[in-house]
Structure formats: structure tokens, C-alpha cells
Design a protein around this nucleic acid. Structure first.
Length: 282
DNA sequence: GCGACAG
DNA sequence: ATCTTGTCGC
């Protein structure tokens, strides 16, 4: 039995998605377009967005999509839009945008309708930009569809165009000294597709930053670093935290969980020392 | 058959 | 992505 997407064989769906990616890719802009992007201190930049989608444990169909807007440079949350969504498209590496981007575009449009003055001037996206099989990852996809500057921030290296998470790559990572240090990721074609960025002083694993839309790689890296209180840039981190919390508050109420799940009856004891952020080492 | 595989 | 654990890396 062949996998299908809305009654259409997956193979045909992938053919359609591939054509759509090529069509949208013609509209991507990989350079700075805004005045604040050229400013050494980012003066004129006041609002940075972050997006993420979190999933419900057992159910691969339901998820929570979150868009947050933070003040810059304070990084305080000014706006949040979290909503449950039903995912129809499957996850296929290289086509993440077709699964998640529609809900992120919806969130941007709700913001435009409700609080246009809070529209972010740039969005950090959980995933890749041009560092991608077809050079058009979810950060480019959201950027083109929303017409907003976007930056791709991935937690793992997408091994495309000859890039490999091999011994040499890991050695280069170990040479990164302080937060803000980075090295370029050059594809076999010779083009620099992104960078591996040490996002803060005590982070072991780098961030993989690439251009999404309407921003240069250099600016994208500099801004991403400026948004990092921990390993994951604050806009993406807040979207991740809030989408997760929304799910827990919505369908995993403590009382019900305790009744259903024996393991939930004994809540975990207090953490040993201070509170640590899951995605942040240090 | 085995390894890869953003989220 | 999510769950879970834990202590190199092939």
C-alpha cells in the first residue's frame, strides 16, 4: 500500500512540491534589504520574531504552531500566537516547509490583522534557509510567502552538497573559542551555504545559520549571535517553550495525566542545582 | 541490506 | 519532532 497525501501518491506529491520550491526559489533575496541590517549596532531594529512547531506525543497529526515577537535588544516577549493545528503533509527531509510553513504564514497574517504595529522586522526560523537540498529550506519558504526577512537556524547539520558531519567537521567545531566564533560551510559547488556558529561561550554544539530571505549571511550570523542568551536564540527558544507549554496546558492537564499514567503520580523532585534550560548546555 | 534523515 | 538515558567513538 503506497503512502498517500490527501489521496495522491507520495511520489506525485513530491513532484508537485519540487516544482513549487523551484517556483518560489526564483523570488528569494539573499542580501540585505533593510537599513538596520547595515548598522553596526542594529539601530532601527526593535522587533525580532521566532517561530516553532511542537508535536503532541503519540499523535503525529496534531501540533502547536507558535509565533512570538521579542523586543530588541531587550529580548522581552511582546506578542505570542500559539494555536493547535492539524498537520496533513508528512515530514520528508527537504520538504519541511510543506508540513509546517502554512501554519506559520497563517500566524503572520493574524498578526497583520490584529496588531500590525508588532509585525517583526525579521524572523528566526527553526530549520534551514539556503543550506538545503534544493537551496530553499523552510526559512526561505516562509520569507518569500510572508515577504519578511528570515534567518534559518538549525540545530543539526543538514548533510547536503558534500557537507558532512564528519571528523574534520567536528574538529573545526572544537576550534571555535568564544561565543560568536564561526566557520563557513562551503558546498562542493564552492558556494558558502551557511556557517556553524558557536552561539555562546559555553556551548559545545554549534548552530547552523543560513540565509532565509532579505538578509545577508554575515548579518544573519551577527544578529543570531546577538539574540542568544543560551544556545538557542531567544526568539526560537521562546516559540519552542510556549508551543510546548500550550500543548501541555491544552491536552495534558496534570490531574488527568496523573489518573491515566501511573508514572505521572510521582512528580519529579526538585532539580539539583538551579534550573537549567533543556536545549542549553552550560 | 545498510546508512541517512532540518523538524 | 518526541521519548529516554546517560558519561568516547567506530
Amino acid at each position: 500500500m503506497a503512502q498517500e497525501v490527501e489521496g495522491r501518491p507520495l511520489k506525485e506529491t513530491l513532484a508537485l512540491w519540487t516544482r513549487e520550491q523551484a517556483r518560489l526559489k526564483a523570488r528569494v533575496v539573499v542580501r540585505n534589504t533593510e537599513a538596520w541590517q547595515r548598522d553596526p549596532a542594529f539601530s532601527g531594529l526593535h522587533r525580532v520574531g521566532g517561530v516553532d512547531v511542537s508535536f503532541v506525543k503519540g499523535d503525529s497529526g496534531s501540533a502547536c504552531a507558535s509565533l512570538v515577537v521579542l523586543s530588541y535588544p531587550e529580548l522581552q516577549v511582546l506578542y505570542e500566537d500559539s494555536s493547535m493545528v492539524s498537520l496533513t503533509a508528512p515530514y520528508v527531509s527537504g520538504f519541511l516547509a510543506f508540513r509546517e510553513a502554512p501554519f506559520l504564514v497563517d500566524a503572520v497574517q493574524r498578526l497583520q490583522a490584529k496588531e500590525p504595529s508588532l509585525m517583526p522586522q525579521v524572523i528566526l526560523v527553526d530549520g534551514n534557509g539556503v543550506l538545503h537540498h534544493q537551496g530553499f529550506g523552510v526559512a526561505c519558504h516562509l520569507g518569500v510567502l510572508s515577504d519578511l526577512p528570515c534567518i534559518g537556524v538549525a540545530k543539526k547539520l543538514l548533510q547536503v552538497d558534500g557537507l558532512e558531519n564528519n571528523t574534520l567537521h567536528r574538529e573545526k567545531i572544537q576550534l571555535l573559542q568564544a561565543g560568536g566564533d564561526y566557520f563557513p560551510l562551503m558546498g562542493s559547488s564552492g558556494a558558502v551555504l551557511g556557517v556553524a556558529l558557536k552561539s555562546h561561550d559555553h556551548s559545545t554544539k554549534p548552530l547552523y545559520v543560513s540565509v532565509g530571505h532579505k538578509i545577508s549571511l554575515e548579518t544573519a550570523v551577527r544578529l543570531t549571535h546577538h539574540c542568544c542568551r543560551f544556545r538557542i536564540p531567544e526568539p526560537v527558544r521562546q516559540a519552542d517553550i510556549r508551543s510546548r507549554e500550550y500543548i501541555h496546558r491544552t491536552l495534558e492537564l496534570p490531574g488527568q495525566a496523573a489518573l491515566k499514567d501511573p508514572k505521572a503520580q510521582r512528580p519529579k523532585a526538585c532539580p539539583k542545582e538551579g534550573s537549567r534550560e533543556p536545549t542549553d548546555e552550560a
